[in-house]
Design a protein around this nucleic acid. Structure first.
Length: 465
RNA sequence: GUCCCCAUCGUCUAGAGGCCUAGGACACCGGCUUUUCACGUCGGCAACACGGGUUCAAAUCCCGUUGGGGGCACCA
């Protein structure tokens, strides 16, 4: 028995169905699988669960792969269930031989009606195994019906150990025998997933708690097919902020593609947020994949379903950006307008602490370098002193006071304070309005360096000075 | 309807009977620092859903109520 759960290598998978866009909830599950595999030097596989040919689309598959790459996930192998149909047929044969697969003849309408009736009578809507009755079966066959096939669950009660939820009991009498083959002979998820997980020796199945009953039924299927049963971890589903229901059932605003295209969140920030949502470390600053993998543990996660909070995410994003090195972002910086002739490293150093989203940089670039921005010259008394000083500092004789380097700029401003007998907002607000046309922003000394003496003189003293 | 899971500050959570007049992080508010934002620092606001038990003692255990999430497809 011990051998049944023996794990030779940690191997995880993320298995989306290409029937729509990935949303933040899917991404979280993908990330958690990835991190656990990474932590244990295991493998991480991507499996496209495209057995539902009516709903699966190639464009969704591409979008999913794009989204996962954007998030920074990497995987060893990509599989497609549509390419493995012969393998599922073989597995079905095995089950038939073992008398675990039996034909059923009810139509979808009949089944739906039966469920409705059961609910009305306070009964759980469980399949009643009518097709197992010889006389019913006989009658159905005489009617010329084509069968679909169900897996016969053993009706027993077992204890399941879930890495997230701990021990819980499951009574199989409360479950319907799952349909494994459609009337047209094509296999369903319950079968294909187990066959693939078994054949790939998946060690851990990490997914949302909407799968708990699936996992129970599938554990019997793993056994019936002679596979080791993987370890299971079912995480509480994320909820949306507006409490408008679970993410797993919703599309739209929280689709990864939309989040990505909005440009409001860095992939790394989203990754870190989703990796820790539901744990007590949600807002930690250190967020490299390495660090996240190292600290990962299923025990860290609460059992209640957490809310996806955009404000919290924005805060993580802001702090992440403030800590980002120029080298890690210079490629994207180059795509911003107005920065062609600008020292971009300097620009980044100047503004990285003043942005929440990367796109905020466009506004700072505009305020810094655009001719169209309205800026106000400082009042005359400030202007006259500062312009005198600027002229002096630009002369070669006064090399000591030239506006090069942050120290010199700070020194310059302190002298200005003393000469004008002005401090704080009284002095700096007018300077800001003159330099950027905006009363807030980075240190004025930094702006001095960024703008350079010529622009500085123009904006503080006017064109004709 | 039924089965499973859950219930602590605005948010994510710590808490496995006395260490809890409930801790942390983020947000928020205020002081300091300061040249604005930020960073830093100090402080503040702020929660055990409700009702019954059990116990010398309950956020913690039990029961009920209420509330939330999930499952109950020829979807995945």
């Amino acid at each position: 028995m011990a051998a049944k759960t023996q794990i030779d290598k940690i191997r995880l998978r993320f298995a989306p169905s290409p029937t729509g866009m990935l949303h933040a909830g899917n991404a979280r599950i993908a990330i958690l699988n990835f991190l656990f595999a990474k932590q244990n030097n295991g493998e991480f596989l991507l499996r496209i669960d495209d057995t539902d040919t009516a709903r699966s689309q190639k464009i969704f598959e591409k979008a999913i792969i794009n989204d996962l790459k954007w998030l920074g996930l990497a995987w060893q192998k990509t599989m497609r269930q549509s390419e493995r149909m012969h393998i599922y047929a073989k597995a079905a044969d095995t089950l038939r031989k073992n008398k675990r697969l039996y034909p059923c003849y009810e139509t979808p309408d009949e089944l739906a009606l039966a469920r409705k009736l059961q609910l009305k009578n306070s009964q759980p809507p469980i399949y009643n195994r009518d097709s197992l009755l010889p006389e019913k079966k006989q009658q159905y066959i005489l009617e010329g019906r084509k069968p679909h096939f169900r897996f016969k669950l053993e009706h027993k009660t077992i204890a399941i150990n879930d890495l997230c939820r701990g021990e819980s009991k499951i009574n199989f009498a409360n479950l319907s025998d799952p349909v494994l083959l459609r009337e047209d002979g094509t296999p369903l998820y319950t079968l294909t997933s187990v066959v693939d997980d078994g054949e790939c020796s998946i060690s851990h199945i990490v997914r949302g708690e909407d799968h708990v009953t699936n996992s129970a039924a599938q554990s019997q299927l793993f056994e019936a097919l002679g596979f080791h049963i993987p370890l299971f971890a079912h995480l509480p589903l994320m909820r949306a902020q507006d409490n408008d229901g679970p993410l797993s059932k919703r599309e739209g605003s929280l689709s990864l593609q939309k989040i990505r295209e909005s440009g409001e969140v860095e992939a790394q920030s989203l990754f870190a947020y989703l990796a820790r949502l539901g744990t007590a470390r949600m807002a930690q600053v250190e967020s490299s994949q390495h660090a996240l993998a190292k600290e990962f543990s299923f025990r860290n996660f609460g059992r209640a379903s957490p809310i996806f909070d955009l404000h919290q995410l924005a805060e993580i994003n802001r702090r992440g950006l403030a800590a980002t090195d120029f080298n890690d972002i210079k490629k994207r910086l180059a795509s911003l307008p107005l920065l062609n002739n600008v020292d971009q490293a300097l620009f980044w150093e100047t503004f990285r602490g003043n942005i929440t989203h990367f796109d905020d940089l466009a506004r700072w670039a505009d305020l810094s370098f655009s001719d169209k921005v309205k800026r106000e010259l400082p009042p005359r008394e400030i202007r006259s002193v500062i312009c005198e000083m600027l002229t002096a500092s630009s002369s070669k004789q006064d090399a000591d006071n030239q506006l090069v380097g942050i120290t010199n700029c700070e020194k310059f401003l302190h002298i200005l304070e003393e000469r004008l007998k002005l401090k704080g907002a009284k002095l700096y607000r007018p300077l800001r309005l003159a330099l950027l046309g905006c009363p807030t922003g980075p240190e004025v000394a930094r702006l001095f360096i960024l703008l350079g003496q010529k622009t500085l003189t123009q904006r503080l003293c006017g064109e004709n000075y």
